[in-house]
Design a protein around this nucleic acid. Sequence first.
DNA 1: ATTTTTATTGATTGACCAGTCAATAAACAT
DNA 2: ATGTTTATTGACTGGTCAATCAATAAAAAT
Lengths: 194, 194
Amino acid sequence: MPKLGMEPVRRAALVRATIDEIGATGTLDITVSKIAKRAGMSSALAHHYFGGKDQIFLAAMRHTLTVYGREVRAGLAKADGPKARLEAIIRASFTSSNFRRDVIAAWLNFYVLAQSSPPAQRLLSIYQRRLHSNLVHDLRPLIGARAGPAAQRIAGLIDGLYLRQGLARDPDPSDGATRHVLAVLTAELKGNAQ
Amino acid sequence: MPKLGMEPVRRAALVRATIDEIGATGTLDITVSKIAKRAGMSSALAHHYFGGKDQIFLAAMRHTLTVYGREVRAGLAKADGPKARLEAIIRASFTSSNFRRDVIAAWLNFYVLAQSSPPAQRLLSIYQRRLHSNLVHDLRPLIGARAGPAAQRIAGLIDGLYLRQGLARDPDPSDGATRHVLAVLTAELKGNAQ
DNA sequence: ATTTTTATTGATTGACCAGTCAATAAACAT
DNA sequence: ATGTTTATTGACTGGTCAATCAATAAAAAT
């Protein structure tokens, strides 16, 4: 039965199945067999393509980060001027593709893993640095030297609201979180945060 | 050898050992045997007093929450007026006893667990509601109807900065986080966040 | 035609671990 | 003295799971 060129198809299926499985259980305590079954293959094949459980999960997070990065860039492309660009960055963090229950569950487990796994820590740092430098880039022309601290506050607020929303029982539309961050952005631009 | 009245001693030792062990590994993926060894007893005894692994961890989080609550109350007792009280609440979240690596690791794992464990979810809700109502109580006299949304932003910022600090490699003194939250508080009080 | 590469899985191994239980013994109660 | 409660553990059980491997087979290359 072997059709050639299956590798990318299988990898993609495993990545999606991993996020689905994490979303279904909430935990990273899932078995390779379950992921493989969800992706329609044997666990041996999953090992064959990824090598091990950690690498499957890291691939899933790399994918999540790629999707997020794409959304940020898409938003920035349409934005005109620093303020519009800042709003685009903030909105991108709460788009429906990043704000789904399963994706949030993956993020939470990713945070936990980042404490003990250097590759996960590295991946997380990439996300954090990118967000920070994106924010600073567009805050600087508006508030100069205060851009750095302001960016830290906004980034912290994004992560915190993301976390809180992920744990809320009611699936509040991401609107609330977005508006909250925009409100703080406004305050930062008015220079009243000190 | 049995000395009587060991139960509270053993329980306390297990709670402390649990947080230490989580801090050492970063994961909740720890064995009862490891915890028990760290606490100087057999795993059977740990099971005897707590019943199961989940219950040991929940007890550890209940303890953490108790310590945190005590610190909030201690801060509030010394504060005079709404603004000083708000500052006390914020400072309490970042005291050295809550801001230790192992405690933060426990929190992260607690967030993950809260997605799938109703008792953990309940415990987390208690923390969140308490923080929110504490903030609203002292924001209301200062900014009236805007207290609710402002409290959500401040609570989100606290959680987000806590999370970010927990994942940073350099153990930045909690000062930075505290100052950031106080800065946003100032902005909220000036009424410029919308 | 046959060798090599790619795809695929069932079965197995080796390790780990949560939870149980029977057994031991000190303290206390009667 | 005898019985009961509390403390304690070594040993065991049942189950789970990551990772490996040998075996099967289709496609591609020679």
